[in-house]
Amino acid sequence: MSAKKTAEPSPESVARAERQRLAAEEGARAVADVERRAVDIRKNMARLRELREAKEAADASLSASLPAPVPKKRARKLPR
């Protein structure tokens, strides 16, 4: 009877597999973090855009309701 030798992984291959697993997990966390930050940034940009557009609309309506500014007359230079 021939006994089959069970191939046990070497300590180096176990360590390499563990490093690869940890690197994959860290990579997935990093990608998720970048995506979450991108979503947060887009939400903030949309909020700021709405505020800016509301302010510009308010400024435009205010300037439209005010009378046109009267041009100032030039001051004369006094002789010395």
Rank of each mutant, 00 (worst) to 15 (best):
M1L: 15
M1G: 10
S2H: 03
S2C: 06
A3H: 09
A3T: 13
A3K: 08
A3S: 13
K4G: 12
K5I: 12
K5F: 08
K5S: 05
K5Y: 05
T6H: 08
T6K: 04
A7W: 05
A7V: 10
E8Q: 10
E8D: 13
P9W: 11
P9H: 08
P9E: 12
S10W: 03
P11Y: 02
P11C: 07
P11F: 05
P11I: 06
P11S: 08
E12P: 00
S13G: 03
A15D: 07
R16S: 14
R16M: 14
A17F: 09
A17W: 09
A17C: 05
A17G: 01
A17I: 10
E18V: 07
E18P: 00
E18G: 03
E18I: 14
Q20E: 12
Q20M: 14
Q20I: 12
R21L: 09
R21M: 09
L22V: 14
A23Y: 06
A24Y: 11
E25C: 04
E25N: 03
E26Q: 04
E26R: 15
G27P: 03
A28D: 06
R29H: 10
R29V: 15
A30R: 13
V31W: 02
D33Q: 12
D33C: 11
D33W: 00
V34W: 02
E35H: 12
E35W: 04
R36W: 07
R36S: 02
R37N: 09
A38G: 02
A38L: 04
D40W: 00
D40S: 00
I41W: 02
R42L: 07
R42K: 08
N44C: 01
A46T: 01
A46V: 00
A46P: 01
A46S: 07
A46W: 01
R47M: 09
L48T: 03
R49S: 00
R49G: 00
A54I: 08
A54D: 03
A58E: 13
A58M: 06
D59P: 00
A60W: 04
A60Y: 03
A60V: 13
S61L: 15
S61Y: 03
S61D: 12
L62P: 05
L62E: 08
S63W: 06
S63H: 13
A64R: 07
A64Y: 02
A64G: 03
S65L: 07
L66F: 07
L66R: 14
L66W: 15
A68F: 14
A68L: 12
A68I: 11
P69Q: 04
P69N: 03
V70T: 15
V70K: 05
V70C: 01
V70I: 15
V70G: 00
P71E: 11
P71R: 09
P71G: 06
P71S: 09
K72G: 02
K72T: 11
K72I: 15
K72Y: 06
K73D: 11
R74C: 03
K77N: 02
L78D: 10
P79Q: 13
R80F: 10
